[in-house]
Design a protein around this nucleic acid. Structure first.
Length: 502
DNA sequence: CGAACCGGTTGTAAAACCGGTTCGGTGCGTTACT
């Protein structure tokens, strides 16, 4: 088949980007396909073009509502009308109508949670599904186990839908992510297109700084000098906001914070402003990034380290999608690793909480499967977050243990295992960040991800030697801002001194 | 671990200080209530 012809016909492009043609060919051959393509290569085109060349409908699983809306818009801009995002933005009536006329949609977007609804599975099962797509498939691995368990149930859903031809798309090409998704999706045979996780145009730097205060000062200094735009990652919503305020006070404009606790409206606005250059710097938590299509991000700074190297890689990977030289800096203070450990632990229910729940069941002589009416009360009394509770409920309900006691015993073991895995990952991240350093950072990452590629990269990392000044802004913009600020501060100091002496 | 907050102490008035405690990230859907 002349794929280029169809590419031009449907999308008006004349040539494919890295990996696209191979992936599409594999799908059209009827093979389940795992595509781990580098960021910014146009992964969605893989299912869009395949969609036009395959019979039947295309079902796309997407992790974020905003991502779904983007994709729907993109398709509609391209003249495709038979698209629907099946999610909570629809009213009851709209949902009902959409289900009734499901066959008139070519592209159907869904969240994994929506796919747990029996009525939706039933209606989808009656359709002819040409391709089942899991977008951002690393979510299975990174979110499935505790945060969004419905990701791990996609395999069952696939089976119920009659094992449709499947495509998994992601940019996080690590062996572990791949294994997780093969196992949970239950693909028997598949083709895979996996590209290196290495991004040679991103220089890697870790700076060890002894105190929190010094780290803040260093951050301000970096921001003042580095050529933007850039993202600064924090592991706390509060700190991200405080830093945005501090940076503004220090004369740095076009800065905003972004985190999951903010209003949906302002989140969209900030994202748009960043995309269009009205904002230069985002002080963000891990909520920021997925689906951000901005090519010219010049640096990513981590004020806190993430909970695993996979996340680190994903976050720094948002820099330099245009292929130009970019920088990733991790600011590390000894003791920083405590925060990730804390976060990991607080996500899982504690032993005491599990014991409490167990006692509740014993006292109330209630079957685990009949918990629904008491659910909210029990959850509240045990002091569990909804994530923690869901994890417990999921496990208890799906267990085949012979007794309540046995069921809870296994639950405790399971949670303990999860904790160990999380700790191990944090430890690996920590080992990469903390001194003593002996080895090239890039090699160390590649080794962790089981790639044995030896590459020579210019300005590779702080170990191989890096010229930070080459990432500094060459315009005088920042300098002027800095001068203005110093003058202001100077004046303030003078006033303060004269106030005291009076 | 560090930051923020709370409540009690200090020593006579108000703010400063101390010690203890709590909290810290990612999102879908539904439902009850403003």
């Amino acid at each position: 088949m002349d794929l280029e012809f169809h590419l031009e016909k449907h999308f008006n492009y004349t040539s494919f980007r890295v990996g696209q043609k191979e992936v599409i060919t594999s799908i059209l051959d009827g093979k389940h396909t795992i595509a781990m393509l580098p960021t910014g290569t146009g992964k969605s085109l893989c299912y869009q073009l395949s969609g036009y060349l395959l019979k039947g409908q295309i079902v796309i699983i997407s992790p974020l509502l905003s991502l779904m809306q983007d994709q729907v818009e993109q398709l509609m801009m391209n003249g495709e009308k038979s698209v629907i995002a099946f999610n909570s933005f629809l009213t009851q009536e709209e949902k009902y109508q959409a289900l009734l006329h499901l066959n008139k949609y070519k592209f159907i977007f869904l969240s994994p949670e929506m796919l747990q609804s029996e009525s939706i599975i039933k209606r989808l099962g009656e359709q002819q599904i040409g391709l089942f797509v899991i977008d951002e498939a690393h979510c299975i691995s990174q979110w499935g186990y505790d945060f969004r368990p419905d990701y791990l149930k996609l395999g069952d859903v696939r089976e119920k839908l009659g094992n449709p031809l499947t495509l998994a798309l992601t940019a996080t090409a690590t062996p572990e992510v791949k294994e997780d998704l093969i196992e949970s999706l239950g693909l028997g045979n598949w083709n895979e297109f996996i590209y290196s996780v290495d991004r040679p145009n991103i220089s890697l730097s870790v700076e060890t700084i002894s105190s929190y205060q010094d780290k803040t000062e260093r951050l301000v200094e970096l921001i003042k000098n580095l050529k933007g735009p850039g993202i600064i990652y924090f592991s706390s919503k509060k700190v991200s906001e405080q830093m945005a305020v501090l940076l503004k006070e220090r004369g740095i404009d076009k800065v905003m914070a972004y985190h999951g606790g903010m209003e949906q409206e302002s989140r969209v606005l900030i994202q748009q402003q960043f995309l269009h250059g009205q904002l230069d710097i985002i002080c963000a938590t891990s909520a920021f990034g997925m689906g951000i299509n901005k090519g010219n991000i010049r640096y990513v700074i981590h004020f806190h380290m993430p909970l695993q190297l996979e996340s680190y890689l994903q976050e720094i990977g948002r820099a330099g999608r245009d292929g130009l030289k970019s920088l990733a800096v991790l600011l590390y203070s000894p003791g920083d690793e405590q925060l990730p450990y804390q976060l990991a632990e607080s996500e899982l229910p504690s032993e005491a909480q599990i014991e409490w729940i167990y006692q509740w069941f014993v006292e109330h002589d209630e079957a685990v499967k009949n918990i629904e009416p008491f659910e909210n009360e029990v959850r509240r009394l045990a002091g569990l977050t909804d994530i923690q509770w869901r994890m417990i409920k999921n496990y208890l309900c799906e267990s085949e243990a012979a007794s309540l006691q046995e069921n809870f015993l296994q639950l405790k073991i399971f949670i303990n295992q999860r904790l160990q895995i999380k700790r191990k990952k944090i430890n690996e991240m920590h080992m990469w960040a903390q001194p003593p350093y002996e080895e090239c950072r890039r090699k160390k990452i590649l080794k962790y991800f089981k790639e044995d590629k030896t590459i020579e990269v210019e300005d590779c990392c702080d170990q191989c030697g890096i010229d930070l000044a080459s990432f500094y802004t060459d315009s005088d913009n920042h300098k002027t801002a800095e001068d203005a600020f110093d003058w202001k501060r100077h004046l303030a100091e003078i006033l303060l001194i004269s106030e005291r002496s009076e």
